[in-house]
Design a protein around this nucleic acid. Sequence first.
DNA 1: CTGTTAGCGCTTTCAT
DNA 2: ATGAAAGCGCTAACAG
Lengths: 346, 346
Amino acid sequence: MATIDDVAKAAGVSKGTVSNVFSKKRPISKEVTERVLEVARRLNYKPNYWARTLAIKETRIIGLNMPGEKVKFSHFHMSLLNGVLKVCYERGYRLLVNTLSSEYQNRVEHLVSDPVDGEILLDPSLDDPRIEERVNRGLPMVVIGRPPEGFDSQIAFVDNDNVKSAIEVTEYLIGLGHKRILFLNAPEQRTVAQDRAKGYRMAIDKAGLSGCGSLILFKEESLTSVDFGYETAKRLLSHETSITAVITDTDKMALGVYRAAEELGYIIPQDLSVFAFSDDSVFSPEFSPPLSSVRLNAEELGSEAARLLLDQLASKQQSVQKVVIASEMVLRGSCSNTRLHTSKEA
Amino acid sequence: MATIDDVAKAAGVSKGTVSNVFSKKRPISKEVTERVLEVARRLNYKPNYWARTLAIKETRIIGLNMPGEKVKFSHFHMSLLNGVLKVCYERGYRLLVNTLSSEYQNRVEHLVSDPVDGEILLDPSLDDPRIEERVNRGLPMVVIGRPPEGFDSQIAFVDNDNVKSAIEVTEYLIGLGHKRILFLNAPEQRTVAQDRAKGYRMAIDKAGLSGCGSLILFKEESLTSVDFGYETAKRLLSHETSITAVITDTDKMALGVYRAAEELGYIIPQDLSVFAFSDDSVFSPEFSPPLSSVRLNAEELGSEAARLLLDQLASKQQSVQKVVIASEMVLRGSCSNTRLHTSKEA
DNA sequence: CTGTTAGCGCTTTCAT
DNA sequence: ATGAAAGCGCTAACAG
């Protein structure tokens, strides 16, 4: 591939001039511009991205980072990604999906700085090593979800109001007459799990149902969501017949619950009501009845995060803005009033 | 951020030594290694990605390129992306989602070489400018879908057997007694549209149904898939009562057909059978009855493409391998035998 | 408006 | 096993 020197020589100008023909950072006479462009075309020359990056210290690439071993996008992530890409597209940035196995991240021979101007971090957890690391490096960053305490006032993030949302869902079920509601939550370390647990407990307490016991189980990383939903539901529902409703973190988990319910001979929603956070809908053909869930507006989460990050990069100063994206319950028919419950003995 | 010089100075060694401590390209004594690493840690040093790239001419980043203005991932793309990412993860590559608006791609001041070692191209069309451009540049590349004639023997690609798949779907509907089958196809320029049209016509001809007329309409870029499905179905079905089945390119298109059918008072599948390529399922909650479709195994398309590309990069030679990914029909209940059709006059 | 020169931070010979 | 120095291809500051 031709270099700037080749072009400069062939066009009979200096490389500085060629550089400026392409960057337009300072005016070049029309004739010279044309001559250079002509030569460049003939030589099939394009400025080398890496060399330029090294010189100007800007990549115009932002990163999207998911924690740990996770390399699997759900429908939620996809919508989010679309939101991020839309903004990148408008502002001339590219998106680097940053999923390197820990082997490639930690071994000395692979250790390098990230090739991005800034990053969007997904799925923050209490005590998230990624955040501190980036704060130390001073890398511009926006978190999607609530950062752990202590950081939440230091860095920008965009999130749903998960506490409120959990209150609403729980109160909805309580309003339907449910007294013992199982909550299959996200992994305990994730801040979103904390927030939803908090909202759930608030609603339970407010309704004076704490006597019945609040019943939260956190997903373990070792199980898939479907398996966790299935196994937990099967185990608990066969013992605790007082449980008439279950809230799940994702629709995949709910799918597991559906399966368990079917095997136990429970009809949804007559015998068991199910409500999910994260309106994923990938498994939808398998859901009968359709699953009621919370729409998190993932695309907006993504586009707002990207906007925040690119604004930060443009203004060259860290912002600590916090953006809350509205979420709403979508009722689809997987929940019913307890008065309608068929007797399990019948 | 500390540079290699800072570390070298602080550790009392040359930068070449520091470089080799990190790259492990030649042996460094244990004591020096440790001293350097210690200093590096203290200074929070990490090799600069772009400086290294400039020197070794390798980014360990591959690109994913979608044509034109498209910046919207469907569920199909998401699965595909997961396949690509899985392989990237295993082999220590990162993925750059390459969606720059044409403004940022073509204007002189933004014209630069791509910051990737190779690229995966999505949705090839007849006469696709992207392909020729990359062939000229000698950029390693794998296409997902069939490249236009002339290139299909020059570059590696992975694809479903869309001709065969279209034959199967059409024959399935013919077997159910349908004689006049509408095919709402992808945009005409896309090679996948050509292949499916071919298969459809072959099945129609073979069944001696050409007299009834093969009925293919190609999506126009200006309309969304849903709108195209809705408007076309509404227009054609209200005139041509002989049409008893429609094949659509995507489930979004099928959704439009469902809506049109509902407005026209047609019951699916009694009055109208619908079959879709591309088992997207995003809209599934809205499909009643569940949509029969072809599962394309997008994840496998993605992982195979990535594997092909990374093998090419590893062996430093272009390959022209062609990989066919199996696809299968998934029957869900949106099609029925014509004998069951209710009379529209009834 | 254009040329010259000194970096950007790393890798890689070539010595020793 | 380590050091010294010459690039990699581009930008930017300084001249003119």
